[in-house]
C-alpha cells in the first residue's frame, strides 16, 4: 500500500473513527506520560519523548487474573484473556520492537495464551522519533532505528502540519481502511521530507555501544571485579526493570478472599532481593552484584543466545530514571574494555 497523508487538523476525527476499537494513546498527568484508553481525542498527548511506562503493559498487564476458584467447587473458572480489538496509537518504534522481541519468548517452548491473544488483537500505530531523540537513546546500537518499523503495523511520521502514514502490515491496513476517508495520497515531497528526518534522527543519536561479541564475552566475565563496582550504588529497586519495555519476568500468586480466590500473575523484578530466594533461605543471587550481572547478562547474552535478538531496544528509560545513575551503557562500556 502506498504512503498516505493525514492532516493534523483531522487527527481528532481519525481518533474518533478508531473509537470502535479499544483505543489507547499517550496521556499526560503531572509529569508522567502513560498509555491509557481514551474517550476524547483531546486526551491524547503526542508531543512527548517517550512514555514513562512502556506500552508493554497493554499486552502484558502488571497484574492479571489467570483463573478463579471457589471452595467446594472442583472446576476452575478460566479468564478469557481477550480485551477486544485494540489499537495503540502513537507509540515509539523502540517499544513496538520490544514487543516483537518479547513475543519470541512467549511463543517459545510454551505458547502463552494470555500474551499471544492480546498481542494478536493489538494493532500498533507507531510515531517515528522525528524530533531529535533524547540524549540517552541508543536504539541504533542494538538493532533499532528511530524510524524502524519492526513490530509496528503502521508508522506515522510527523511532518509539521501533517503525518505521513506508512502501512506496514495487514493489521495496519485494517486501521488505514477505517481511516480511509481521512487519508490522502502522499506526494513525493512528503516522502523525501520523511526520509530526510529519518537520516537526521539517526544522526541525532549521540550515545552508542559496540555489541559485537558481547554475548560470549559477558559469560567470561562472571567473576570480574567490574560487577562489584557497577552495582555498588544499586538500591535494589525495580525502576530499571518495571519500566523496561523488554523485561518480562512475572511471579504467580494466589489471592484468597473468604471462600474464593484467584490465581494471578504479576510483574516481578530480578533486582528484588526475594526474586530468586529459595524456600530454604538460600539465595543463588545473594547480593545486588549478582542481580545487576544477571540483568545485563540476560539482556545481552542469554536472550540473544536463545532468540537471536538483544533483549534491549535502547529506549534509555533505565538510564534516565535510575535513582543513582547506574547507566547500562556505562556498564557495557566497561564490559567492552574489560
Amino acid at each position: 500500500m502506498a504512503e498516505k497523508i493525514l492532516i493534523k487538523e483531522r487527527l481528532g476525527d481519525a481518533l474518533g473513527e478508531l473509537s470502535k476499537f479499544r483505543l489507547l494513546a499517550p496521556t499526560k498527568s503531572d509529569e508522567v506520560v502513560l498509555f491509557k484508553q481514551i474517550d476524547d481525542p483531546a486526551e491524547a498527548y503526542l508531543d512527548y519523548l517517550n512514555s514513562t511506562v512502556p506500552p508493554k503493559r497493554v499486552v502484558f498487564p502488571q497484574t492479571e487474573t489467570l483463573f478463579k476458584f471457589r471452595a467446594g467447587e472442583p472446576d476452575l473458572e478460566e479468564k478469557d484473556p481477550s480485551e477486544g480489538e485494540t489499537v495503540i496509537w502513537g507509540l515509539r518504534p523502540c517499544d513496538a520492537r520490544a514487543m516483537a522481541i518479547v513475543e519470541k519468548l512467549f511463543n517459545w517452548d510454551y505458547e502463552d495464551p494470555y500474551y499471544l491473544k492480546r498481542r494478536e488483537e493489538t494493532t500498533l500505530v507507531g510515531l517515528a522519533c522525528s524530533s531529535i531523540p533524547s540524549v540517552n537513546c541508543f536504539c541504533t546500537s542494538v538493532g533499532g532505528h528511530p524510524f524502524g518499523t519492526e513490530g509496528l503495523d503502521v508508522l506515522l511520521t510527523d511532518l509539521g502540519d501533517k503525518y505521513l502514514v506508512e502501512v506496514v502490515s495487514d493489521k495496519g491496513a485494517k486501521v488505514a481502511e477505517a481511516l480511509s476517508g481521512l487519508l490522502a495520497d502522499a506526494a513525493g515531497a512528503d516522502k523525501e521530507a520523511a526520509a530526510k528526518l529519518s537520516t537526521e534522527a539517526e544522526k541525532g543519536i549521540s550515545r552508542t555501544i559496540g555489541t559485537e561479541g558481547l554475548q560470549e564475552k559477558l559469560l567470561n566475565l562472571w567473576e570480574n571485579p567490574l560487577w562489584k563496582k557497577v552495582s555498588a550504588a544499586c538500591l535494589g529497586c525495580g525502576v530499571c526493570t518495571y519500566l523496561c519495555p523488554t523485561c518480562h519476568c512475572f511471579d504467580i500468586q494466589d489471592e484468597v478472599e473468604e471462600d474464593e480466590g484467584r490465581r494471578a500473575r504479576m510483574w516481578d523484578s530480578c533486582m528484588f532481593c526475594e526474586y530468586t530466594l529459595h524456600g530454604s533461605g538460600h539465595n543463588p543471587r545473594p547480593t545486588r552484584r549478582e542481580r545487576t550481572r544477571n540483568r545485563i547478562n540476560h539482556k545481552y547474552s542469554y536472550f540473544p543466545s536463545k532468540f537471536g535478538d538483544i533483549a534491549c531496544v535502547g529506549c534509555a528509560r533505565c538510564i534516565n530514571l535510575c535513582p543513582v545513575n547506574i547507566d547500562i551503557l556505562d556498564i557495557l562500556q566497561q564490559v567492552v574494555e574489560a
Binding site: 502488571q62 525502576v239 489471592e255 510483574w267
Partner: peptide
C-alpha cells in the same frame, strides 16, 4: 517499584513487611 522504600535511609529492616508472604500484609497485585 519500591524505589521510594529502597532509597530511604530509614528503611533498613532485615525483612520488610512488604516482602513477607506470611502474613502478607499487602498483595503483590497492583
Amino acid at each position: 517499584c519500591y524505589g521510594c522504600r529502597n532509597v530511604c535511609p530509614m528503611c533498613y529492616c532485615d525483612e520488610c513487611v512488604l516482602d513477607r508472604l506470611s502474613p502478607q500484609w499487602m498483595r503483590r497485585s497492583v
